[in-house]
Design a protein around this nucleic acid. Sequence first.
DNA 1: CTCGGTTACTAACGCGCGTTACTTCGAGCG
DNA 2: CGCTCGAAGTAACGCGCGTTAGTAACCGAG
Lengths: 360, 360
Amino acid sequence: MANSTPTAAEATPTAPGHRGVTMADVAKAAGVSRTAVSFVLSNRENASISEETRTRILEAVQALGYRPNAGARALASQRSDWYGIVTEIVTAPFAVDIIKGAQDQAWLDRRFLLIAPSDQADAVGPNKGMEDAAFEKLLEQRVEGLLYAATFHRPVHVPKSANEVPTVLINCFDADGKLPSIVPDERAGGRVAVEHLLQAGHKRIGVINLDPNIPAAVGRLEGCREALAEAGLELDPDLIVAGYATADGGYEAACQILDKYPAGEGRPTALFCLNDRMAMGAYDAIKERGLAIPQDIAVIGFDNQELIAAYLRPKLTTVALPFEEMGALGVQTLASLTAGQPIIAHQQMVDCPLLERYSV
Amino acid sequence: MANSTPTAAEATPTAPGHRGVTMADVAKAAGVSRTAVSFVLSNRENASISEETRTRILEAVQALGYRPNAGARALASQRSDWYGIVTEIVTAPFAVDIIKGAQDQAWLDRRFLLIAPSDQADAVGPNKGMEDAAFEKLLEQRVEGLLYAATFHRPVHVPKSANEVPTVLINCFDADGKLPSIVPDERAGGRVAVEHLLQAGHKRIGVINLDPNIPAAVGRLEGCREALAEAGLELDPDLIVAGYATADGGYEAACQILDKYPAGEGRPTALFCLNDRMAMGAYDAIKERGLAIPQDIAVIGFDNQELIAAYLRPKLTTVALPFEEMGALGVQTLASLTAGQPIIAHQQMVDCPLLERYSV
DNA sequence: CTCGGTTACTAACGCGCGTTACTTCGAGCG
DNA sequence: CGCTCGAAGTAACGCGCGTTAGTAACCGAG
């Protein structure tokens, strides 16, 4: 301000922050070398810059509206501070939460998260190549690490290019068993759900199952059986009904259970629905029969699909899938990997917390 | 392959695509200058490279697993091919769809979409600064254009830095009236909804309203009145009930309407719910009274919140908010702006299509 | 044989920045 | 006074690439 020499660069002084202000412009304005500016802006430890010139430089930065060029910085320093995540953003109410968790954590670490879409992951469709392209694009940006997130817990095949930088899988695991992964602890989740029902006094519990082969079903059911076993109970095979993972599927499965047993005579007093969408359908089946939730029949879900669980009437008690936590943990794991630290655990499992609402 | 000179760069020949393969490496491997490689890879028109060396270069690219460095390329060419979008990814089942639309379109245009989070937009909370930081971060990446997306249709204040590059608002509009925006055509949407009810023979229609002051409510109600007027009907003020934009709010509003009019005596035969969450609550109110949807009372929603609308029983007929289309249009608009073309329309309105399911 | 005009390239600069090696200057010390 | 040493800064290189100006070889016309 005091002795700022007007330069050509200040063509539009009323609009600071106009594009193309470089460190050289700042240096000229402050009357120092470009190196000095660089030292100040990167807060170098052992650089000796007097307090006076330091503030003069910072003033010039402010006045000109200088903004560093991330690309140039990455080029010169050979590090980008970027991570990449590829995920099916499409059908995915879940993927969003993973992204949010990852992005918030990245933001805390002063890193930037690049997001690339991959439409259907293992699609047979025409865009099988999209996923490879997504990885490719991210690597062109010279990301320092990669995250791969699936919308439901399952084994996946990841493009080979993922081997070029540290890569962590979220909500899925490497079918080839190489890459580290972060998954929900389905077993513990199933256990916590059923323990909650037991504590509420229920002894006869119906289960509305998913496709029995997917990891989620296997784990949750295992946890369910564990909890029952500890209470000296067993799961009645007649009370497990599988259905499509939709509200309609849940409705039909619930009907099947409720219609098999008249009131009192062996009818379960609680239903463990392996996901919230099915619980939504179960609600209808129960209400149709004039039964009250939770007085006549308690219902517990799984997933905590907010839009459903928090808006059903009564609000659904459920076990939450820890998407945000997994996203955050993914970034943390990536950070330690890119820092050169060894892989701590090949597969990290994250707890699924119980969310008590009003259906138990 | 034939006469490839082994170089130090081929340290790990079994792992092509290892990091740090540069154009110079490719040039050396192909026995040409770096310039020649650059010409081939960027498909220059008036560069004369013989077909022979051309294929030799491409072979070297393949063999070494060369991958361009996007940052360096942006630095040299002074253009980045990147757009940025800042949005509240948080609470936002909607923002996701906007992002998807934008990202798919960007992908088609061979551009990359950088996503920055902005937690609560006009939050009073501690992270008011986050939004500015998001813009700042994106500008540091030298994005060529910016998108700003809100989760519900409303006026917004955008940080001044948005003026430095072309900026388009999506699902919101500039409170200062400067920036171009893309919003849903709420009025036409309300009209289409009510026309659909009229066509189904309904003449007495109840409206479950949102906060009457927000743009969505204003527009949708206006469209509703238009449709009625064209049929020679009027909206009975007694049949408009506002509530909180939740399932509970919808439940209470529906109760109020249904309890005021006993069957036959002026009870509406259809409910127009201004969003799907409220429709969800209205379903419960209707079912509780032993009425059937749509036989006794038809219900139509707005928003097409997939997780609700497609899973309610019966599935909800609703008017969709065109998030993906708005996202895509945003990128298209940005493309024309960055190409130097003038602003076509200050505010572009996108149609809200009717989705017929089973509740009317 | 010379000369203009192509074809097929290459040398060299600069994008904006981080970083290393070097210079300059004044204070302190024997 | 001569010397060293730290403080305060600067010149210059290179990151990987796009791009312009230029060069060398060849070819046909005069």
